[in-house]
């Protein structure tokens, strides 16, 4: 698995498959790759996303209206590969669509279409044993989450983590936050003590100042709602042929602005 090779702090963007259209998802993925993304998290829209705030809920609703499904999202990965997306891709999906597709079939389909990892936000460690075995046998990474409330749970989750460990920055659902908790740095360093894989941080990260602050204490930074919100702002422009290119460029410039601190040389230690 090639999720964890980067020496610098990884940039891990999240977008929703099919928002606003599958073809545009591919183009947005290409822009993200160009802007320096190390891993792409491809969100599968769900009717009842318990871990998501309003921004991603709205994106999911748009994508579902357009007919996006879990198998279509997985097949989108293979189309992305054909169009030149080379970075690892993680499928982010709630558990119920996986159950309905069939867990074994899901992993086989993911493997066949070039997916590198899977993140299921409502499948906690204790319920994940069968899925963990399947992902291991297909050679995919099952990305685990740890949260500020995890405490004594961190050790068992971190020690069996695959790919990278996703650290939830603060209590709550996904969505942009003005401030991150003061204890975040201590939380991240505790996680890193137990983790054999890189520890990335996500939930609420939406400004370059936050990125700048976090790049020293984490191995990767996940940015979701801020990007999804940018797509929402550009909805009309993205969907009109004459303005699409400009909208894609604007999206890329926004991403570059947010992630600029990751590309500056680290201060010598």
């Amino acid at each position: 698995m090639r999720l964890s090779t980067a020496a610098k702090t990884m940039f891990i963007p999240f977008i929703v498959a099919g928002d606003p259209h599958p073809d545009l998802t591919i183009e947005l993925a290409l822009e993200l790759q160009q802007a320096g993304a190390d891993i792409l998290e491809l969100g599968v829209p769900y009717s009842d996303p318990l871990a998501d705030g309003p921004t991603i809920q709205r994106a999911a609703a748009r994508a579902l209206k357009g007919g996006m499904t879990l198998p279509k999202a997985i097949e989108l990965v293979s189309l992305m590969r054909k169009k030149g997306v080379k970075i690892p891709i993680i499928i982010f999906t709630y558990y119920n669509p996986v159950l309905q597709l069939g867990e074994e079939f899901f992993f086989a389909l993911a493997k066949e279409n070039g997916v590198d990892g899977v993140l299921i936000p409502d499948l906690p460690f204790e319920e994940s044993e069968p899925i963990r075995r399947l992902s291991a046998s297909t050679g995919l990474s099952l990305i685990s989450l740890v949260a500020p409330t995890s405490k004594q749970r961190i050790e068992k989750i971190a020690s069996s983590a695959q790919g990278f460990l996703y650290c939830v920055s603060s209590l709550g659902v996904t969505g942009m936050r003005d401030t991150l908790p003061d204890e975040l740095e201590a939380f991240l360093s505790e996680v890193k003590r137990y983790s054999r894989v890189p520890a990335a941080v996500g939930f609420g990260i939406s400004t370059s100042e936050q990125v700048s602050m976090l790049k020293h204490c984490s191995d990767g930074i996940v940015i979701g709602s801020a990007l999804v919100q940018k797509v929402e702002q550009l909805l009309d422009a993205l969907q009109r042929e004459e303005t699409k290119q400009e909208a894609l460029s604007e999206f890329r410039r926004y991403v570059q602005m947010l992630t600029a601190p990751l590309n500056q040389r680290c201060a010598p230690e």
């Binding site: 318990l50 871990a51 558990y95 936000p121 409502d122 499948l123 906690p124 460690f125 204790e126 319920e127 685990s144 989450l145 740890v146 949260a147 500020p148 409330t149 995890s150 405490k151 004594q152 749970r153 989750i157 939830v168 209590l171 709550g172």
Partner: peptide, 20 residues
């Protein structure tokens, strides 16, 4: 012990809620 009624039940929630 793990909240299963036969195969039903369980605890399928985000990690943040596990300790609570």
């Amino acid at each position: 012990e793990i909240g299963r009624f036969g195969e039903f039940g369980g605890r399928f929630v985000p990690e943040t809620l596990m300790r609570p």
